[in-house]
Design a protein around this nucleic acid. Structure first.
Lengths: 253, 253
DNA sequence: TCAGTGAAGTGAACAGCGTTAACCGTAAAC
DNA sequence: GTTTACGGTTAACGCTGTTCACTTCACTGA
């Protein structure tokens, strides 16, 4: 993403934009080495003093949020690329490739994963709550499930089978997904989105945090197992053997 | 847990023991308010200066590890109490009650949960790796699954159906569980332990971190859904309606 | 073209953090 | 009764986020 320069912007505005890009770049570089991201270190890496950064972010938390947002955006492109490595018609393969790439990215960049997905957002202000709803990785994954649903037409839970609390949440969901184009009677699909996200987030967080036998993490077998167990929910039971090879191919890079 | 005083200890040793107890108590009190645990604040709360704490822990990380270990121990007692609220013969009910209590504890004490279960242990030294293998909550949960297995005798994956990487890990697992008493041909049960832990950790971490629609979290329906989907794996499909009411009863306290 | 405005950056400072060093009193040990 | 060593102190270093007062300089409006 070469960050196209908008000519309608004034010179000052363009310079400011590019400084934001620099901030994110410096932050990600620091994050690659150390788990702690410090405002001062970011400033130093950019050849600035710490107070200068306050012209761009109002607080340390806002810096973290900015970086998290951009990291998520950048990572999503690699997930999308993984999906694009397969046939456009192969929605299941694309979904599985993207989720596997998500897992690989998380294990390879644990600090970036932590900043995006392990930052408790109950604490933070509503700003972060809104950011999360904009998460591009979330949009990609829900879109990919949607594609599978369109192609394979798996059965989706009926609204009146779902608990009322869930039904309410499905009417106007606070998750990163396009839902307007989903007919009211198909809103159960959004519940499937949530189930899938729970499974994916669950294993990956577990693996990144290291709360499991390192040899199992290393092998990726628990991740595969989770995918396998979830596959029937989105009508991919029969296809699982093929999908498993898609996963394994990507795990072994 | 009234921390019994061992009379064989010398006065100095007893005093030292009680200081450790104070350290943990002060830490947990601080953790109840703020997510950040600081060595200086702990010292201040105890009426000491920060350097004095270094007579008890070698570093801040060691303080965190100590607190994490004790928090896990204390929390496990509440999980066990939840299980004990049911018939000793009702292993499935006990398992479900304990896991539900785990979830409730995590949501009610997010900072304590984070310190125990969201601290990346890949970073930390092997000390932490050992601590995690001693985790009492892990032992309790695996024991409860074991009880279900003994009572219900659900089918366990055969070793030769499992990937070789998993088989190796099952021989001498690095997880908090008693495995010596499990016959070689039943070692697939340990894989079920891991699957169960993955599911439980997954939802709960997701909920605590807040990466899901707050209304769904509030309702607890995703947690129930995860339990329901896992139940067949440990032979509890038929019993699920009753177990669901056990969960709901505990959720609504 | 020139005065004026405001954005961007600086250095100094404050409070708090983990950590180390030197020091001291007192309780235990021989 | 002397010695040892444990548990505490104060001072200090370098790091953190954050604020304030100040400068510099590019751009704007007249």
């Amino acid at each position: 993403m070469p960050h196209l320069i908008d000519p309608t912007l004034t010179r000052r505005e363009r310079q400011r934009e590019s400084t934001y890009v620099d901030i994110v770049a410096a932050s990600r570089e620091l994050l690659r080495e150390s788990p702690e991201l410090s405002l001062r270190a970011v400033a130093a890496k950019m050849g600035m003093t710490a107070p200068a950064l306050y012209r761009y972010v109002a607080s340390y938390q806002e810096l973290v949020d900015l970086v998290a947002f951009e990291v998520d955006k950048a990572a999503t492109e690699t997930f999308a690329a993984a999906a694009d490595a397969l046939d456009p018609d192969d929605a299941p393969g694309r979904l599985v490739a993207a989720t596997t790439e998500f897992r690989q990215w998380a294990l390879g960049n644990p600090h970036e994963f932590a900043i995006v997905f392990a930052n408790p957002i109950a604490e933070a202000a509503c700003v972060r709550r809104e950011l999360i709803t904009l998460a591009s990785s979330g949009h990609l994954l829900t879109d990919l499930i949607h594609d599978v649903w369109v192609q394979r037409g798996f059965a989706v839970p009926a609204l009146d089978e779902l608990p009322s609390a869930v039904r309410e949440a499905l009417e106007d969901p606070l998750i990163p997904a396009k839902v307007e184009h989903i007919a009211a009677e198909d809103r159960g699909l959004v519940w499937v989105y949530m189930q899938g996200w729970t499974q994916l987030y669950g294993v990956v967080a577990l693996e990144v945090m290291g709360h499991m036998d390192p040899r199992v993490i290393e092998s990726g077998e628990m991740f595969i197992d989770v995918v396998r167990r979830f596959a029937p929910t989105i009508g991919l039971a029969e296809e699982m053997p093929r999908l498993e090879s898609v996963i394994r191919e990507r795990l072994s890079r």
